[in-house]
């Protein structure tokens, strides 16, 4: 089990999981643990010779047992693919999988938050290149979500409105909009911390994956794919990113929390990365090298 240590200065939990030092690190394609097990080859995490979508408990979990869960979501058996290369229909099925796992993990006794995410690219620190995401079921509400939920609750008390609905409403002029249909919007928020940060959100108020209807799912899948295609066209190469789904916590927050997905690509140009350094890490103050209006226009044009 991990050790949870409380930082009284930031009032945040730090999770200590030393066994993660030994996790599989950049295996060759023939030794990929997320591929199906090929006849005559060593068994991978997935013993069958093929699969559609597979989810399993992380072998090197940050949370397990009574603390929570860490799951790996294998999007496809195709080692050389990516989330953005999946069909809209396949992404709709992935949404159903994310929803299933969110609901099931949210029912575990000590789980306070279910977080669906993907790290993509070596630049982000990915150690397995096979297309996959992860789900963390935390025994606490993580700090970023905690602050977001608190701000949303304050805004709701003060105005009676959802904070994120108001954020979306501010995008009426379209200047920071990357894509939009009648259900979802993709935009670079005015407060983006990364040059090509994008938020995807349902334009109608929804608290989490479980609140999306079939039309929402279809639009979500289509707009997610289009954003990822734009990302890979941006510098004519697979763009690394963190994809972070901000859902309501299990059993609460549906009224004031607005489900959305945040993307943080580390690139500020094709060959230059933004590193979190003195101001960001030591002081928590992000300095961003680009205006959201300009990067949104770039992405919109792709």
């Amino acid at each position: 089990m991990s050790e949870l240590r409380w930082d009284p200065l930031t009032e945040e939990w730090v999770t200590v999981a030393p066994w993660r030092q030994d996790r599989t690190y950049h295996p060759s394609a023939e030794h990929c643990p997320l591929c199906p097990t090929r006849p005559g080859m060593e068994e991978t995490e997935i013993p069958e010779p093929d699969y559609y979508i597979a989810v399993f408990e992380n072998r090197f979990p940050s949370y397990t047992g009574d603390q929570g869960r860490c799951e790996v979501v294998c999007y496809t058996p195709d080692h050389d693919s990516s989330l953005g290369e999946q069909s809209v229909d396949h992404i709709r099925d992935l949404i159903a999988v994310w929803r299933d796992r969110t609901t099931e993990l949210g029912r575990l006794a000590n789980v306070k938050y279910v977080y669906v995410f993907e790290n993509r690219g070596e630049e982000i620190g990915v150690t397995l290149s096979h297309p996959h995401g992860q789900i963390y079921a935390y025994p606490f509400v993580p700090p970023v979500l905690q602050r977001e939920l608190a701000a949303e609750a304050r805004h709701m008390r003060k105005t009676g409105r959802c904070l994120y609905c108001d954020v979306i409403d501010d995008e009426r002029d379209g200047i920071r909009t990357v894509l939009r249909d009648d259900r979802w919007i993709a935009f670079v928020p005015p407060f983006a911390r990364w040059p090509y940060e994008v938020h995807l959100a349902p334009t109608n108020h929804r608290g989490g994956l479980a609140d999306l209807d079939e039309e929402d799912d279809l639009s979500f899948a289509a707009i997610l794919k289009r954003v990822l295609q734009k990302y890979d066209r941006l510098f004519q190469k697979p763009l690394p990113y963190v994809m972070a789904m901000h859902q309501k916590p299990p059993g609460r927050g549906a009224r004031h929390h607005h489900f959305h997905v945040e993307f943080y690509p580390p690139n500020r140009t094709r060959d230059k990365l933004k590193y979190l350094a003195g101001s960001e890490l030591g002081a928590g103050a992000f300095i961003v090298d680009a205006r959201a209006e300009d990067t949104a226009a770039e992405l919109r044009a792709l």
Partner: peptide
């Protein structure tokens, strides 16, 4: 809001791995 009558898009099959961890195969409902 989702309707309870909606037909699921995927069905799941849970198996136990040799070390006790679970593995879930999600298959497309045809």
């Amino acid at each position: 809001m989702r309707l309870a009558t909606e037909k699921p898009r995927v069905k799941k099959r849970v198996v136990k791995k040799a070390d006790g961890r679970y593995l879930i195969y999600f298959e497309k409902v045809s």
